[in-house]
């Protein structure tokens, strides 16, 4: 433990990576001073815990129907009431955390590397590669994101996996932009020139040296983007193009409660609140991270 902190907090770092990591660590130490960010972190941790212990927290099977107990208002037995098939909304929301996490993680895992690679390659290689790739991001950015995701899901067919793919397709360009901007700064630096002189291949430089240096800003970008991903996924679910029934996806749950909105308000209200809280958590955390990570 001490060795790690020593390594990170040393005044004389031996490599660029150590220097950069040390920088980040110092910022991390400053992080708890930002109360809003801590609230965000708290929400995310709570989200993870609920997802992990869903079976313990839920009071009922999220899929168990009981048609004779439909549309019951919130009560001691059903904290958030029941939906049009008599399922317990509280338990569905609890299990819905898993769905949300899966969507977010899958998108991030797909988008991060793609955006990073395209951006880094574009920024580092320059020339026609840069022009081509940036033109591509321009085209994608010229689409409203939701409309594009909608079109892709319509093309791929509804479902959780396809929703993830569609969101990923629409999400990568800003990542590529960020990575490219970072790369443009990094490639100017002396040590990259030094490595190049040593005869390293371009791809190796991009992969081994440029990409790692872009990571921190991309992580911030990702955290900030998580809320957006959740909202788009919920929007697709709401339009009936996201997760398949009976999966307790929050957007689809709101959509299902739409018909009863004026009489049984709880069916659509609680899943919406859940989305708000989680999205807010990611936003608070991301915002705090951004403050810490870049001086701007």
């Amino acid at each position: 433990m001490t060795t790690w902190t020593d390594y990170l907090l040393t005044d004389s770092p031996e490599s660029r990576r150590q220097a950069k990591l040390g920088q980040i660590y110092r910022k991390w130490l400053a992080f708890p001073r930002n109360p809003l960010a801590m609230v965000g972190l708290g929400i995310i941790v709570a989200l993870l815990l609920v997802a992990a212990f869903a079976p313990l927290i839920a009071t009922a099977d999220p899929l168990a129907q009981n048609l004779d107990r439909r549309l019951l208002p919130p009560s001691g037995a059903n904290f958030f009431g029941t939906d049009s098939l008599g399922r317990d909304i509280f338990s569905r929301i609890v299990y819905g955390t898993r769905v949300t996490l899966v969507i977010v993680l899958l998108v991030v895992v797909t988008v991060g590397p793609i955006g990073l690679l395209i951006g880094a390659a574009s920024g580092y290689l320059g020339g026609w590669v840069d022009r081509l790739l940036m033109r591509m991001t321009d085209v994608f950015l010229a689409f409203p994101r939701l409309v594009l995701a909608l079109a892709f899901v319509a093309a791929l067919g509804p479902g959780l996996e396809n929703a993830v793919i569609a969101i990923a397709i629409t999400a990568w360009p800003p990542y590529a932009r960020v990575a490219r901007a970072e790369t443009l700064i990094i490639r100017q630096q002396d040590y990259i020139a030094a490595i190049r002189l040593q005869g390293a291949s371009q791809w190796r430089i991009v992969w081994k040296h440029v990409v790692p240096m872009c990571l921190p800003s991309l992580i911030v970008r990702t955290t900030l983007d998580m809320a957006g991903i959740i909202l788009i996924a919920a929007g697709l679910g709401f339009l009936g193009l996201g997760a398949q029934p009976p999966i307790p996806e929050w957007g689809a749950m709101i959509s299902a409660g739409r018909e009863q909105i004026f009489d049984q308000w709880w069916v659509a209200t609680f899943p919406g609140l859940a989305i708000c809280v989680v999205a807010l958590g990611f936003n608070l955390l991301g915002d705090g991270l951004r403050d810490v990570m870049d001086a701007r």
Binding site: Q65, L85, G157, P158, G159, L241
Partner: peptide, 29 residues
Amino acid sequence: SVSPITDIAQAIQANWAQAGIKLELLPGD
């Protein structure tokens, strides 16, 4: 993905589970 088709389908899904039939619903327009 329209009412009441979705609800009926989900009810059937639960009915069929009682005989071990695992029904996967593919929503669509």
